[in-house]
Structures are given as C-alpha cells and as structure tokens.
Design a protein around this nucleic acid. Structure first.
Length: 565
RNA sequence: UGGGAUGUAGCUCAACUGGCAGAGCGACGGACUCUGACUCCGUAGGUUCGAGGUUCGACCCCUCGCAUCCCAGCCA
C-alpha cells in the first residue's frame, strides 16, 4: 500500500471511531466488515464501501475487516456472484485473511435466537398473507393494527415455528414476526418479519438444508455481533432500520453490540449504480456482460484499463459524508490519468490511418530509431522503432486548409514526426470522389534529434511504419448514457431511453507499432497524443489484438474546438 | 406538526468543534514542451439554503421556515 493510501483523508466515521477509542468503547478494538449480497457484480459504489471498511481496518492498530456474504435470499443469489465479488475485492488490493464468512454460516444460531425471542414473548408466528399484512401495517401517516395472531401463546408459537422449519407449511402461509409496536412512526418497527418460508430453492451454501430464511434486519445485527464487529457501516437508506438493529441485539442473549453508522452512497454522473438496473443492462443485452468496459462495475473498470490504485485514489478523493451526492466523471478520469501518466509506457498507434510516402527517402531503407518509453522516467527504458519511406499518420493530423492555431500537418507545411524527422507535405493525392488517399512528403535528414536550421516547427505528430506496423482492433468507449442522471429523470419512461448510442466505436484498421505485438494481456499503454489503452486479451483473436481505450488524454484543443462551434 | 436524514465554490469534500471560509476535480489565462499530454505559474468562482436570536465573535449553538433524499417487501 502506498503512502497516499495510508493517509486516507479523515471523515466523520473515523472521528467517531477516534472518539470511541478514546472513551474505551468496544474494548478498544476496531473491527469492520464488508457485507455484499451475492446477487450481482460489485460496482464503484461498492468500491467506496470496500475502501472505507478495509481502509479503516488497515489504518487502526489491530484493525480487522471481514468479508461476509449476506446470503439470506437464495432466490437471487449464486456462486458466480460470490466468486466475482471475492476476485474484485482482492483485485482492489484488500485481504480478508481467514475471515471469510457467510450469513448462512449462522442459520442455526439465528434459529436459536428466534426461539429465544419467541420464548420471551417478543416474537410470534403470523398467518396473515402478504396483502393482509400490508393493510395491517398502516401508512406513513396512520398507525397500523395488531395482527389477530399476535397474542398466540408461547407454546403455540414455538410449535408453529418448529413446524415452519420442518417444512409443514407452504410458502407465504406464515412468517415469524417481532412483537414491537404497530403504532410506531417508524414502519420498520411495526412488527417486522423475521423469517419467511421458501421451499424449492437450492441455497448456494446450504443447499436444501433450510426452507425458512431469516430477513436482513434480523440477520445483520446478529451476524455482526457474532463476528465481534465494532462499527457496522452501511448506507443511508438503513438509517430507519437502526432502531430495529438495536432492538434485535437488546432482546437476545448476546454480549456484543456493534454500532451501526450510515453514510451516503456514491452516485456517478452519466451512469447508473443500482444493481437492479445494472442487471437489466446485462440481461437485456444493452451491454456485453457485467464486465463490459462501459459498465461502472469493478470488473468493467478493470477491463476498461482502470488500475486498483486509481480506484482507491478516487474513493479517497470523494470522501465519506451523509450528504446525497453526484460525482462528476472527470473525478474518476483524473485519477486514472494521474496513475497511468506515471506508470504506463508510451507507444505509437495510428487509429485512422492515412498513408504518407516520403519521396526523398530511399525505398529499401529501414532506419532503427530509439524511442524512450516514458518522457520523464528513464528507468522505463527505450525501444527501437523502424522508420521507412512509407508510413501512416492519423487522418486528423492533416488538414488542407487549417485554422489559425492548428499545429499539425498542412499542405506545404512542416511537422515533426515524433521520435523521428521533420517532414513537409508537398502534394495531396485524392480519389475521384475527392477523398484524400495519400500524402506525398519529403523529409529533412538533418532533423533527427535536432531542430531544423533557421525555422521553427511547432507541431509533433505520431506515426507508424507502413511496412512494420500491424493492424489491430481498437475500441473507443464513451459514456454509457447521455444524461447526467439517467435514473433520476422522471420525464422519460425508462432510464434506457438515455442510453448513448455512440458509447462504443470500434476501429478495425488501426495500425500499431511493432513493439505492441508482444503486449501482455491486460497491459496498459499510453498511445501518444491519443489516450490510455489496454490490451483486452479476452476480446483478442489470433493475430488480431484488441485494445480498449481507458480514457483519452486531456485535450484542450478539442475543448477549444467545441467551444467555437 | 407521520418518521428519519441532508443543505459550505460548477462537482466532491475540509474548516483543529465558537476565532481571518480552504483543498481536490472542473473552468479560464499564461509559461514550458519532439505528446495541443505531463509539469509549473496565475485568475475567476461563496449572502456557508433563508429569516430571526444568543455571543466581543456563528458554517458551527437556539427558534421558525424552505428545499432535497429515504421509509408503507415475506428484498438487501
């Protein structure tokens, strides 16, 4: 872990922990947990929570953080998700050591505690169906009514609950409920459901051992307490659940009472963060799976070329508060640029090739030029690039008639070829329909590593030898949605209407410098003057590698251009 | 007068707990440059949601408003 990661900025939760430590609460321990439900892939919002929980554990002496799967709803969960979550947490750089848990590990204990609640008259078996229960619950402004089954005897409740477990009753026919207060202004306290019946689902951990499953509100506090968690950090929507969290622990025989603290979820502009919507994007094939590089999932960002360091840096920078927020994409992008600018080797790649013939350069000649892999870091070494009579440059780097401040190649003008010579464009060759097909140029042999005599050449463009470069596929990604808050816009029927049809552009004929042919799967480069790219091994086919654009370089020219339009 | 929470720069957060309102990102301008990148320098941007009150002094405490978010699953 780098220095920067160790110095994660403080926040109100760390201040609470500091105070707790000072007061000697929780026996001076700090123990957090990250409790995902394995019903989808992790996204950057989860990364925020992971960095918070594991980060706190790292920063406090003796601090620990558990990974615990909150697997109480087998209907939506599966092992694929369990595995992807473990992979993503590790990839982000965190380690749960031997503290991998499942809420389902505690099913037996949870059952025993339920028996205790029943015995002390604090829970009862209710025969109301879901619709009836809704009616009895009341509304936001009116109190609810007590269930007619609320005053069953302890003995009858015990018997019924045992038979629920034994599988004697159908799904939905009965539930176990806490006996709290049907008149509470907090709906969560109106005799909440503790257990429901679910036949015929095979739980990914417990198989068919159970046909009753505990609810989150009942399971979570007990799981936390059994693991000796000191600070149970969760998102804002659970704030109303805290009284129930506390109620459960106060009404069973357990000697640990973790402190639940809520913080606000992450919202990122131009994307969606709800698992339901991400699942929909995957299921209905709007994207190419959970790890589609346009997805805000950890797997998607990884495939896009983001580094764990950059995501951690992002999580540090956005901070932790209780205020609703919507973070600009630029924040994330600046983090990956900062990381990759420092660590990614440079290479040259021509995305939209335009052929150039250097007429005063001998046909058979091949010159080996030296190019540094990083302009500021000599330790990253250098590589050989081959210069030849025919090369490719990017179509965008040539204009017949250029605006004032244009610094690239124009007819009759000069430009520096990166790491090579200065060339001048003498003639433009066009096809019958007027499309530029080729440029005829001449080079100045005195300009290798030296400025030309008596004149200033301002522009520098990148290039690849036509005879030595190789063709690759390059995928240019843009934001998945063209609305800053696609799921908050009430004026459309569905967030899908804001999907950006241009979110993926595939270039089939990019020409890359030969050194890129040996790139390792997943390795990242800066294609000079274009952006950061990473080799997508999964998408590559024999002989045709695929590179994903992680992010463009900052581009003040493009900004200026846009402004003038 | 249903309950719970949150309002500080365009965005995300600070402000040593009552003592000159700052940073990162973004924007704008300039310098440098064999990447229109990086780096460096500079500029703009604030009625701290509003109105009262307490105080020598309020982003912070009190009162009353306003706005936004969450809650009526046998989801988490």
């Amino acid at each position: 872990m780098s220095e920067q990661d160790k110095n994660a900025p403080s926040n109100f939760i760390r201040q609470i922990i500091d105070a707790d430590l000072k007061e000697g609460r929780h026996e001076g321990r700090v123990h957090t947990r990250f409790p995902p439900e394995p019903n989808g892939y992790l996204h950057v919002g989860h990364a925020k929570s992971i960095c918070l929980n594991f980060g706190i554990a790292q920063d406090y002496p003796g601090g620990l953080c558990n990974l615990r799967f909150d697997d109480t709803n087998p209907h939506k969960e599966n092992v694929e998700y369990v595995n992807s979550i473990m992979q993503d947490v590790s990839w982000l750089g965190f380690d749960w050591d031997d503290r991998l848990f499942y809420a389902s590990n505690y099913f037996e204990q949870l059952y025993e505690f339920a028996v205790e609640l029943i015995t002390s008259g604090k829970a009862f078996v209710c025969d109301l169906d879901a619709g009836q229960m809704r009616e009895y619950r009341g509304t936001l402004t009116e109190p609810g009514r007590e269930s007619p089954y609320r005053n069953r005897s302890v003995a009858e409740n015990l018997d019924l609950f045992r038979r629920m477990r034994a599988g004697e009753f159908e799904d939905g026919s009965r539930v176990l409920r806490a006996k709290i207060d049907m008149a509470s202004p907090n709906l969560n306290m109106r005799d909440p459901t503790l257990y429901r019946i679910r036949h015929g689902v095979i739980h990914h951990q417990t198989g068919e051992a159970w046909c009753i499953y505990p609810m989150y509100d009942y399971t979570h506090p007990i799981s936390d307490a059994l693991e000796g968690i000191t600070h149970s950090l969760c998102t804002l929507e659970f704030e109303d659940h805290r009284p129930l969290y506390d109620w459960v622990l106060e009404n069973i025989s357990i000697d640990c009472h973790p402190q639940q603290i809520e913080f606000s979820r992450l919202n990122l502009q131009y994307t969606v963060m709800s698992k339901r919507k991400l699942t929909q994007l995957v299921d209905e094939k709007y994207v190419d799976g959970w790890d589609d590089p346009r997805m805000p999932t950890v797997a998607g960002l990884r495939r896009r070329g983001y580094t764990p360091e950059s995501i951690r840096m992002f999580c540090d920078r956005i901070g932790i508060t209780k205020a609703d927020n919507s973070v600009e994409m630029e924040m994330l992008e600046s983090c990956i640029r900062e990381d990759l600018d420092q660590h990614a080797p440079r290479a040259m790649a021509v995305l939209n090739p335009l052929k150039i013939v250097i007429e005063n350069y001998p046909e058979e000649r091949v010159e080996e030029l030296n190019a540094p892999n990083h302009p500021k870091d000599e330790m990253m070494g250098s590589r050989i690039i081959k210069f030849t009579r025919e090369i490719f440059i990017d179509r965008d780097d040539f204009l017949e008639q250029a605006p004032n401040k244009y610094k690239r190649l124009v007819t009759g003008g000069e430009v520096r070829l990166r790491n090579a010579y200065v060339i001048r464009c003498d003639r433009v060759i066009k096809s019958e329909n007027g499309e530029i097909t080729e440029l005829r140029c001449s080079y100045d042999p005195t300009t290798l590593g030296a400025n030309p005599e008596g004149r200033k050449v301002r522009g520098v463009i990148h290039w690849v030898s036509a005879s030595h470069g190789f063709t690759a596929k390059v995928r240019l990604y843009d934001r998945l949605f063209n609305h800053p808050a696609p799921d908050a816009d009430k004026s459309v029927a569905s967030f899908l209407e804001h999907l950006n049809p241009q979110s993926l552009q595939t270039l089939e004929t990019a020409v890359l410098e030969p050194s890129l042919a040996n790139a390792a799967p997943g390795s990242r480069f800066q294609f000079e003057r274009e952006g950061y790219f990473c080799l997508d091994a999964a998408a590559s086919e024999e002989g045709v590698p695929v590179f994903n654009r992680t992010v463009t370089l900052r581009d003040s020219w493009a900004r200026m251009d846009q402004k003038n339009q």
